[in-house]
Design a protein around this nucleic acid. Structure first.
Lengths: 256, 256
DNA sequence: TCACCAAGAGAACGGCGTTCATTAAGATAT
DNA sequence: ATATCTTAATGAACGCCGTTCTCTTGGTGA
């Protein structure tokens, strides 16, 4: 442990006037060399902290203690990085073997799982909406969702649309959830409360609807109750059920 | 018309070495003073030419022959401008008086109209997806859509979701249409062909699906035919019909 | 004629995505 | 042990962005 045992030329200590070189980046790199994986991970950290609008290559680089340009050795562009993040969403995701007798439940499970994955990172729905899962890596997931619909007995034309329809619904729903969340956050101040105050938000909305001119918005007023009292989960299931019923109507025996 | 009749101090002509001052901006401004309307119009021009990613305040200002900062006298931010563009989409839009016997047709018409409006400007679906029509100005439209659902006899919980569901479907569908369009455009080169080559695109996709390992993607292979041969309009109507059937299943008499 | 005013110009700030030449460190060959 | 090559990261630069601030200018009413 004692240094200078041999004649190994120890570099002289830096003179006081010369700025100490930043050694930390190198040290960090030695601990864990940069990689696509590490970059994606850092990107998720930045995403959760600052949202999609605050997700810049510079922030990601900063998170890793590295310069921006270093990232471009592993990632060809910001779009590339976003696509990696999108693909990440599918990791370890698997649909069950299609069971014609349980196809509704299987689709429900798919939908709930997918929604919870979208909710697991801030603004993830925005990223998801900007992508189509038609890369070689993701096609298997599309395939197994289609398998469920076809096994259920849906006509080809219906099955072909069903996947898109369900996925679009989920993305859109979560996207809106996020927008209300953001709106709530920006009202309570710049800070990002872990859980936005739904109660307060709902009350405010309720009041707003109730304050609308009586004669002009009868339906909005009438529905403001259920819009506000129903939880997000309930509303999600309702929309999902509407789609499932629509799909089921194309089956020879809709009772299935 | 003759100048210098009186002692009005005419400014000397600009010396040859000094850059001629740009007079055109001023002239243009005199012709038609800036306004929110003119700014929105210019923004649409830029949007159609360069897409949402190319829509910058600087480009809009350039389109008007004006400096960036001038815009900020009329528009408080870029977000504000985007919201104006979004609101523009609703101009002159009107839903018919709800007719319980024709509610499906009324919803279909609403959906087709809305889709065609989204298609009328490049990337408009992206802008639409980022907004909720819950501003004072747009609530009447929401109201009259809800009116159709309620008049049809849908339960409140269902009617409350139906508006969101349909709107999300339309936005999502058009968004995807745009993505395929962009993908096609970037393959044929930087140029922006007015109508992307659907035929070629479809063939290419068909080939891709057909080239997939036989055993691994039976459903994708089986459905690639209908996915490709059906026109966008047909696919849109199919998805819409699925939703309408789902909604109808909540009516006492689903035959309506 | 002069003071005022609204509208727009112009410059600047900090941040962005991306590229490029350069450098430090380790591995390899002589 | 030394010279060479490779790799991985740096740091500076380019051109663009949204936004703000100060300044100019042309027209208006007293």
């Amino acid at each position: 442990m004692s240094d200078a045992a041999e004649g190994t030329p120890v570099p002289p200590p830096p003179s006081p006037w010369e700025r100490e070189r930043p050694r930390r980046a190198r040290v960090a790199a030695a601990r864990a060399p940069l990689s696509r994986e590490r970059i994606v991970e850092a990107a998720f950290t930045v995403l959760d902290r600052s949202g999609l609008d605050g997700l810049s290559m510079r922030q990601v680089a900063g998170e890793l203690g590295v310069t921006v340009s270093a990232l471009y050795a592993y990632v060809s562009s910001k779009d590339d990085l976003l696509e990696l993040m999108y693909t990440r969403l599918f990791d370890g995701f698997s649909l069950p073997e299609p069971d014609p007798d349980r196809w509704r439940e299987q689709v429900r499970e798919y939908a709930r799982t997918w929604r919870s994955r979208l909710l697991s990172h801030r603004d993830m729905a925005r990223i998801s909406m900007a992508h189509v899962p038609f890369t070689a890596e993701l096609l298997p997931y599309v395939e197994s969702l289609l398998a469920v619909f076809r096994a259920a007995g849906l006509p080809d034309r219906i099955a072909a649309e069903a996947g898109d329809l369900i996925s679009t619904y989920i993305d859109g729903f979560v996207l809106e959830e996020g927008m209300w969340q953001d709106r709530a956050a920006e009202q309570t101040g710049g800070g990002t409360p872990a859980r936005p105050d739904w109660r307060e938000m709902a009350d405010e909305m309720q009041n707003y609807f109730a304050s609308l001119p009586e004669g002009d918005f009868p339906h909005l007023r009438a529905l403001s109750g259920v819009m506000v009292t129903d939880s997000s989960d309930e509303r999600f299931d309702i929309g999902l059920e509407i789609i499932l019923r629509g799909l089921a109507s194309y089956l020879p025996d809709p009772s299935a």
